[in-house]
């Protein structure tokens, strides 16, 4: 019975429509200028708050992690194509200290040379053991879970420990090399 029908046209006259249009344009311009000024204000506030937060964070680091006992563990990836990191669990002296599930953004950053500060804590002087459990997917699409242990001795002063993840063909088994510096 019915074919395609045209929708009802707007009942306003062309003149009124023109007036509306110019009104809209003026409103859009005003609103856009206003939004841009709001964006500027937000940007200035962001700068102030970022600076403030950085100061608070630095103060927190000084207070919570005294220099002489501090241990910092970093994680980097040698070849991100060979290994897609899923998560890392970290144990110090058999006690879990941190676990991190990596997002796509973080994985991408690690692949571009980013280094994740995985753990900051305090340890007394003497021998300690660090155990890392790596969950990842190799380039051959196989999911792997590897446990790696590193023994180290903490002396006076901050100890930096870097874990470098790598995986080699054909098995793409994750391997970690540890390096330490003060």
């Amino acid at each position: 019975m019915f074919g395609r029908k045209k929708t009802q046209q707007c009942r306003s006259t062309p003149r009124t429509r023109g007036l509306f249009k110019s009104g809209y344009i003026v409103m859009a311009m005003v609103s856009s200028a206003h939004a841009s000024s709001l964006d500027d204000q937000i940007q200035r506030l962001t700068a102030d708050i970022t600076r403030h937060t950085a100061n608070v964070y630095a103060l927190e680091q000084k207070l919570l992690h005294p220099v002489d006992t501090r241990v910092i563990v970093f994680l980097s990836i040698k070849d991100s194509d060979a290994l897609e990191l899923d998560s890392v669990e970290l144990f110090v002296n058999q006690k879990p200290v941190t676990a991190h599930l990596y997002s796509d953004k973080e994985r991408h950053s690690l692949g571009q040379g980013g280094i994740h500060q995985l753990f900051v804590g305090n340890l007394s002087d003497g021998p300690h053991s660090l155990r890392a459990v790596i969950n990842a997917r190799g380039a051959n699409n196989r999911f792997v879970r590897r446990e790696l242990v590193h023994d180290f001795r903490k002396e006076s002063g901050t100890l930096h420990l870097q874990m470098r993840l790598s995986a080699n063909a054909p098995d793409y088994d994750p391997d970690v090399s540890f390096s330490e510096w003060k």
């Binding site: 970093f74 973080e106 040379g113 980013g114």
Partner: peptide, 8 residues
């Protein structure tokens, strides 16, 4: 590397 990670 740490700064790059923080920024990303």
């Amino acid at each position: 590397g740490v700064i790059r990670f923080g920024l990303d």
